[in-house]
Design a binder for these strands. Structure first.
Length: 575
DNA sequence: GCCGTTTTCGGCCCGACTGTTTTCAGTCG
C-alpha cells in the first residue's frame, strides 16, 4: 500500500466522519493527514520501520497508529467499524452541489437514502420536500444538480475551460464600470482539470455588473445572485462564478478567488496569529480597522512574504519556501528550445518531416526529434526496423535542406507491448539518436504486471525517455495502476528521463509525480507529442504543469543547449 | 485529531448567499 492509496483512505474517513456529524476538526485532521501523505517525499515503509510516522505533518499518535495498521495488515478496523455505521455509498451524495453532510445524513436517516440513484428517486417522488428544513425549491435544485452531475460527471479539461473562460473575460472587461478583471480559481492555477470557471472583477459599482452577468444570453440557470457574488449554469452545462469588489479591494478578491482553498486558509491562519482577520474584502484588526489591498503583491507583503505564483498555491510548502526566500525560479515557455517527441506522416502525424521541422523552427525551437510509432502499433502505421532505416535518409535530406537552423534527431516512440516485450531489437535502437518508450496498450493490467513492463523499458540501456508515463487520457481513461515508487526509483537508477506530456488531453506526468521525480534528481522532459504544427503551440500547458511541480529550467532537458543534450544522449548509450 | 516564539489545553478561516424561517443553519469556495 503506497502513500496515495493511504491518502485516499484517510480522505474517505474524513468524508464519513463529516456525515456522521463528528466535530469538524476531527475530520479536518484526517483530511490534513491525507493531503500530507500525498505530498510526502520520503519512504513511508522506512518511516514506519524507524517509528517516525509522527514526523509527518498533521500526523499524531492516533493517525500514526492507523497508518501502521494499514501498512502491516492492509486493513483498518476503525474504517470497517465506521462503514458499518455509515453506508460508504453515502459519500457520493456529497458530490452533488447543495448536498452537504447534514442533508446527506438527514436523507439517510429519515428517507432511507443510501446512494445517488436512491436520492434521485426520492426527489422525483417528492419525498425530500416532506423532510424538516427541506422545501420544494431545495428539492427541485437537488434534482437539477443530480441531472447536471450525470451529464457532466467529470471535470472539464483545462484547455476547454481556458478557451471558454477567456471568452467570458473579454466580455466582462468590455462591460461599463469594470476596471479590471481576471480568470481566477483553478484555471489561474493551471490545474489539469477544472470544475467551474471563476471570474473576478473590480468595479466601483458591482450591482450592474452582476445584473449583466446573470442576464447573459448563455445563462440557463441562476444559482446565486448576490451583491458581491453570483453563480450561473450555462446552456453548455458549464458553471461560471463571478465575484465583484471595488478596485481598492481587488487584491484580496483576486487572492480569494484564486485559491486554492488550502492556500487561502493558511494565509488566514497567519492573519489570525497576528490578531487580524483576512477575507476577500480586506484585512481587519480587532478594533475593526480595515487595511485594503488593490493588488496581490501588497497583500503578501503585509505578511512579509514575496508574491507567490498561482501555480504554487496548493499548500504544498509554498509558505515555508516563501518565508525562507526559497521560492523556485520557475521555468517559462521561452526556456524551451527543443521538442523531443513528435510524429511525421511516416506514422500517424499529418505532415512530412521537413514541414514539421520548419514549423518547429518558426516557433523558435533549435532541436526537433522525429519519434514516430513503432511497428506493433498498427493503427498508427508504426515503423519496422526497415522503415526506420529508410526514414533516416529522409531525415538526413531534410537536415541538409535546413542547414544549421534547427537540429533534427531521429528517434522512435517504441511500444511497451502488452506481453511485456519491447517492440524493437537492441541493434535497431542503437542506430537511433533518441529512444522513447511508452504504454498505449494493456493499461488495465494489474499493478504488478504493468509495472513490470514499465521497468523492462526503463532498464533497457537504449531507452532515454518514458513518454506520458501513466497513459491517462483526461476525462476518458484512467492511467495505468503503476507502482510509482518502483518506477521513480528505476528511472533514478538508470538516469532515464520522464516526460510531462503537454497535450491537454494528457498532462502526464501530473504535477505531483513530476515534483517527486524532480526532487529525486530524475531529468524531466516537456514535449507536446506533436502530430501537427498546431500541437506545438500546446507547449505552454506542459510548462505550467512543470511550474506546478516547482520545476526550474535546469531540471528540464528541453532547455539544454543542443550540445549538452547530445552529450547526455551519447553518454547514455552503452559503449 | 493535531498542535504550541502567546498555549501541553483550548483553540482550530472567513464571508456570501439561499431557503425556510421568524433569527439562522447549511453549503460553498
Amino acid at each position: 500500500m503506497d502513500q496515495y492509496q493511504l491518502a485516499e483512505i484517510f480522505d474517505r474517513i474524513s468524508a464519513l466522519l463529516e456525515i456522521k456529524g463528528e466535530v469538524v476538526y476531527k475530520r479536518l485532521a484526517y483530511k490534513r493527514a491525507a493531503d500530507s501523505l500525498r505530498d510526502l517525499n520520503a519512504d513511508l515503509q522506512q518511516l514506519h520501520a524507524e517509528n517516525r510516522l509522527e514526523e509527518i505533518p498533521g500526523v499524531g499518535k492516533a493517525i500514526a497508529e492507523k497508518i501502521a495498521e494499514l501498512l502491516d495488515t492492509g486493513h483498518l478496523r476503525f474504517l470497517e467499524k465506521l462503514e458499518a455505521e455509515i453506508p460508504p455509498s453515502l459519500v457520493e451524495l456529497l458530490s452533488i452541489p447543495e448536498v452537504g453532510p447534514k442533508k446527506a445524513l438527514l436523507f439517510y436517516k429519515e428517507a432511507g437514502v443510501t446512494s445517488l440513484a436512491e436520492l434521485e428517486a426520492a426527489a422525483r417522488e417528492g419525498k425530500l420536500s416532506q423532510l424538516p428544513g427541506i422545501g420544494p425549491r431545495t428539492e427541485a435544485r437537488i434534482l437539477a444538480n443530480i441531472e447536471a452531475h450525470t451529464r457532466r460527471s467529470v471535470r472539464m479539461p483545462l484547455r476547454e475551460a481556458r478557451i471558454a473562460g477567456e471568452r467570458w473575460l473579454r466580455w466582462l472587461r468590455g462591460l461599463p464600470g469594470v476596471q479590471q478583471a481576471d480568470l481566477a480559481g483553478s484555471i489561474r492555477r493551471w490545474r489539469s482539470t477544472i470544475g467551474d470557471i471563476d471570474l473576478v472583477a473590480a468595479s466601483a459599482d458591482p450591482k450592474p455588473v452582476m445584473e449583466a452577468f446573470v442576464n447573459h444570453p448563455e445563462v440557463k440557470l441562476v444559482n446565486d445572485h448576490g451583491e458581491y457574488k453570483s453563480s450561473v449554469l450555462l446552456n453548455s452545462g458549464i458553471s461560471v462564478q463571478l465575484w465583484v469588489q471595488p478596485p481598492e479591494r481587488y487584491g484580496t478578491l483576486l487572492f480569494h478567488g484564486t485559491g486554492s482553498k488550502d492556500h487561502n486558509v493558511r494565509l488566514r491562519e497567519l492573519a489570525q496569529q497576528r490578531g487580524l482577520s483576512l477575507s476577500e474584502r480586506g484585512l481587519v484588526d480587532k478594533e475593526g480597522r480595515e487595511q485594503l489591498f488593490a493588488d496581490e503583491e501588497q497583500l503578501y507583503k503585509a505578511f512579509d512574504l514575496p508574491w507567490i505564483p498561482p501555480e504554487l498555491r496548493e499548500n504544498r510548502g509554498e509558505f515555508e519556501a516563501a518565508r525562507n526566500g526559497r521560492l523556485p525560479e520557475l521555468i517559462r515557455l521561452e526556456d524551451l528550445t527543443a521538442e523531443l517527441h513528435s510524429h511525421s506522416n511516416w506514422s500517424d502525424g499529418s505532415l512530412p518531416i521537413l514541414k514539421m521541422a520548419q514549423a518547429a523552427r518558426e516557433r523558435g525551437l533549435r532541436v526537433l526529434a522525429i519519434t514516430d510509432h513503432s511497428q506493433s502499433l498498427g493503427v498508427a502505421n508504426g515503423l519496422s526496423p526497415e522503415r526506420l532505416r529508410a526514414q533516416r535518409k529522409e531525415i538526413d535530406a531534410a537536415q541538409a535542406e535546413l542547414g544549421d537552423s534547427i537540429l533534427l534527431l531521429q528517434g522512435v516512440e517504441m511500444e511497451i507491448r502488452a506481453d511485456g516485450m519491447l517492440d524493437l531489437d537492441d541493434d535497431t535502437l542503437a542506430g537511433l539518436d533518441i529512444v522513447i518508450a511508452s504504454l498505449h496498450v494493456g493499461l488495465r493490467q494489474p499493478r504488478e504486471e504493468v509495472t513490470r513492463r514499465m521497468l523492462t523499458a526503463i532498464r533497457n540501456p537504449h531507452v532515454d525517455l518514458i513518454a506520458h508515463p501513466s497513459g491517462r487520457l483526461l476525462g476518458r481513461r484512467d492511467g495505468a495502476d503503476l507502482d510509482w515508487d518502483a518506477v521513480l526509483a528505476a528511472a533514478k537508477e538508470h538516469g532515464v528521463a520522464l516526460e510531462i506530456n503537454a497535450h491537454p488531453d494528457r498532462l502526464d506526468l501530473d504535477d505531483i509525480y513530476a515534483h517527486r521525480a524532480a526532487e529525486m534528481g530524475i531529468p524531466i522532459a516537456i514535449n507536446t507529442d506533436a502530430h501537427s504544427p498546431a500541437d506545438m503551440d500546446l507547449r505552454e500547458y506542459g510548462v505550467y504543469i512543470a511550474r506546478r511541480a516547482w520545476l526550474g529550467p535546469a531540471q528540464v532537458i528541453n532547455t539544454w543547449p543542443a550540445e549538452r543534450l547530445l552529450r547526455w544522449l551519447r553518454e547514455r548509450q552503452p559503449s
